[in-house]
């Protein structure tokens, strides 16, 4: 028998992902009006979102002693990392909907991982729009910043985007895992994901003590951009956070990804033993 019973290689998985995501894009293309409508309104919302920052800086010259270029840098890195996670991973939140409709079972009768299938099968190309807007802000910030781009800074910048995307993606997966138990709690779940996105658009030190602690220790979104930005922008944290924290993002991302994997496996195990 020439049937492939071995595990697919990473190359094969990448191919299957492309084919499945491509099918979803073609399917969504059937509803062009809705596609463009969504892209347009989302574009408008994200532009207004960034305008908030412009409005603030119309009134004040700095925010927590950070300039508009620096805050834009935070906003841009947050937006790029968040929307990369949104584009490639946030589909996992469809799991609870599928459980309610009874279509989660279809994922379990196919020879692929459940998370992989959700990410590929529910791929939504329309989310690219928000990523473009975030990238534009980031490009503006980088050109407006008065920073000398040493090798170390460029490396830290690349690392920050990778780790940031991983952190946001892990938060999506963890909150989607929790929704296996709390099927009706999607609002609560969104407060983790969108909440951490919003919180990382501004310098952490302008927030209250408990929020700072929450974003460092509980939902470690501050590692997405604030701490690594301290190094890149040559800033120090006014509350005396140790210098090493500026380089801790990859480690935090790794731990969070491992937690997310375990949470997802646990959630799927829960589903397979309870059927709900």
């Amino acid at each position: 028998m020439a049937l492939a019973l071995d595990k697919p290689t990473v190359r094969e998985l990448a191919h299957i992902y492309r084919v499945m995501a491509g099918a979803r894009i073609r399917a969504d293309w059937q509803y062009r009006v809705s596609f463009f409508g969504y892209t347009f309104t989302q574009g408008l919302i994200t532009v207004l979102d960034f305008l908030q920052i412009a409005v603030i800086f119309g009134q004040v010259d700095s925010l927590g002693d950070w300039s508009i270029a620096e805050v834009s840098f935070l906003y841009g890195t947050s937006a790029v990392a968040f929307h990369l996670g949104d584009l490639f991973v946030s589909q996992v939140e469809r799991a609870s909907q599928r459980i309610r409709l009874g279509t989660f079972d279809s994922l379990l009768i196919r020879p692929l991982g459940t998370m992989f299938q959700l990410c590929a099968d529910d791929f939504a190309f329309r989310r690219v729009g928000k990523l473009v807007q975030g990238t534009a802000v980031l490009v503006y910030a980088v050109t407006a910043l008065d920073v000398e781009w040493t090798v170390g800074r460029v490396g830290a910048f690349a690392m920050m985007l990778v780790a940031g995307t991983a952190i946001f993606s892990a938060i999506w997966v963890i909150s989607a895992s929790l929704s296996f138990w709390l099927i009706e709690a999607s609002e609560l779940m969104n407060s983790f994901t969108y909440g951490s996105s919003f919180a990382t658009e501004y310098p952490l030190h302008i927030m209250g003590k408990w929020l700072r602690r929450l974003l460092t220790f509980v939902v470690p979104a501050a590692f997405v951009n604030y701490y690594p930005s301290l190094y890149i922008l040559g800033r120090t944290d006014p509350f005396g956070v140790p210098g090493g924290v500026r380089f801790a993002s990859p480690a935090v991302a790794l731990v969070l990804v491992l937690v997310a994997r375990a949470a997802w496996a646990n959630a799927v195990r829960h589903y397979r033993s309870t059927g709900s």
Partner: peptide
């Protein structure tokens, strides 16, 4: 499952069969 289809709802039937070739890695 008689009550639920495994096919890709918005695509031509042919496309579902082609997709499954990749999903199951059939020669």
């Amino acid at each position: 499952f008689g009550q639920r289809t495994q096919l890709w709802w918005d695509l031509p039937l042919r496309d579902s069969f082609d997709l499954l070739r990749h999903v199951y890695r059939v020669p």
